[in-house]
Design a protein around this nucleic acid. Structure first.
Lengths: 250, 250
DNA sequence: CGCATCCAGAGCGTATACAATAGAGCCCTG
DNA sequence: CAGGGCTCTATTGTATACGCTCTGGATGCG
């Protein structure tokens, strides 16, 4: 890696790149806003895993036709935030146990690896921005605004990944962070919501000091502690083993 | 596999056969077939970077309406294989220099990391399958079927990642491998097409021996050698610096 | 003769209409 | 009264229609 290149406002991933010239109608820009809106609702747990997302209802809410909604839902499905079942429509994804493990394993690998890169590339402006984000997060926690806190925490990890300068990996981390929010919704214990904001502060200091190795190690413990805080039970399966469950009663 | 220049025989035959007898049996499955068809065409360089993909034309070729085509194109866009420009339609992505670097950096991080996991989990069946794939690849190379070879090479890396058991990371690697094929199309030198099949054989042996560390190191050299073989020039950019170019004339 | 403007064509973006299907409730029958 | 089949409705899947924008060429004016 090298050089100087900044990653403008990421998260838009595809399409809508050069539309800076003028506000042409509500066009595809509106769709992106709808995407962000639904995405935020899911990440903040205002839409809980399993919630059904009927196309008509969404189309009505956002004032567009189903065509646009379908587009948005398809994108969300590709990011694994919603699940599309063939004739049943869309619903907020309920991550499986395997999926949860996979996501955290992936985060461990990628985010830790990125810390080394980020420690070398981080700038003063980055540090300031991260501190602001961490501060916002702490305040949200203090005010018991768990929804904001969750979203801010995911945003923090995503922003951290962007510092590496690798857009591809940053996008990937962003998706993983979003999915982690879903995982927390299903397997998390109430009251203990994922990241301790204190951890994030420590992380910033290590990066500011340019100590990539330590930052990586700290991130590893950070992620592992989150994963460890989950209650990963197999939960009610598709086909609950009724025979087993009612064996004593029968 | 002689010169079919655009998406040719295989694609149309599949679709026509499927919807020939029944009313509309194909359902969403047909769309997946179309996705794979276009995806394969891109990876095999039958569709070159920059090629425009007009919706009408594709709809005509595959015998469905633009609706389904748009869905497929959107998916391909999210995977960065095609680029959607607001009012200009879809075209095969021409990866930028930055993107190429990002993709290989990501592969380095993820694929090497996965080798350690894969070495522990690999089974006899996996080894056999990988050997078969490597063999196919060697044969394709020997027969000068570069298109097949490229596709097989990407498939090999993707399959390798699957062994880790981590579906999320495996999917990610699959996408990176596909994008690498695009990068090779733009920045690769003719005659030297990415992976040496010999490398793949060595990799299999290291994994079969359970030596994750060495496999990881080998993968690192493997990927770096591919990246090093590219001719990464800045090339004509979006906005060529005309003032600079014609400065002497003016 | 050169340049700006207008016109026509092509292709994408969105909405709407129609068809098919799964789920649920209801009726009929044993 | 219970069970099974049937219809009926709600919701998704697909196609088509229409409008808007952008491109390229022709035309009129300076």
């Amino acid at each position: 890696m090298s050089g100087s290149r900044q990653m403008a406002e990421s998260t838009s991933s595809v399409q809508e790149q050069a539309s800076g010239s003028g506000p042409k109608k509500s066009g595809g820009k509106g769709l992106d806003a709808i995407y962000r809106s639904i995405s935020a609702a899911i990440i903040e747990h205002r839409l809980k895993p399993g919630a059904r997302l009927r196309e008509d209802a969404l189309a009505d809410v956002f004032g567009i036709s189903r065509t646009g909604i379908r587009k948005v839902l398809q994108r969300l499905a590709l990011e694994q935030l919603v699940t599309l079942t063939p004739r049943r429509g869309a619903s907020v994804t309920r991550p499986s146990v395997d999926e949860a493990r996979d996501v955290f394993e992936a985060r461990l690998m990628v985010e830790c690896g990125l810390m080394e890169v980020a420690a070398k590339r981080i700038t003063e402006a980055d540090i300031q921005e991260l501190r602001d984000m961490a501060k916002q997060e702490r305040e949200a926690l203090r005010n018991r605004e768990q929804r904001s806190a969750i979203k801010l925490s995911a945003a923090f990890h995503a922003r951290l990944a962007e510092i590496s300068g690798n857009r591809t990996l940053a996008e990937f981390v962003g998706q993983l962070a979003s999915r982690s929010s879903l995982i927390l919704a299903v397997y998390g214990n109430a009251g203990h919501l994922g990241c301790e904001s204190h951890d994030h502060d420590n992380l910033i200091e290590l990066l500011a000091a340019g100590d990539g190795a330590r930052a990586s190690g700290f991130m590893e413990r950070h992620l592992k502690s989150i994963e460890a805080s989950l209650s990963i039970f197999e939960e009610p399966e598709e086909t609950p083993d009724l025979k087993d469950i009612f064996a004593v009663d029968a």
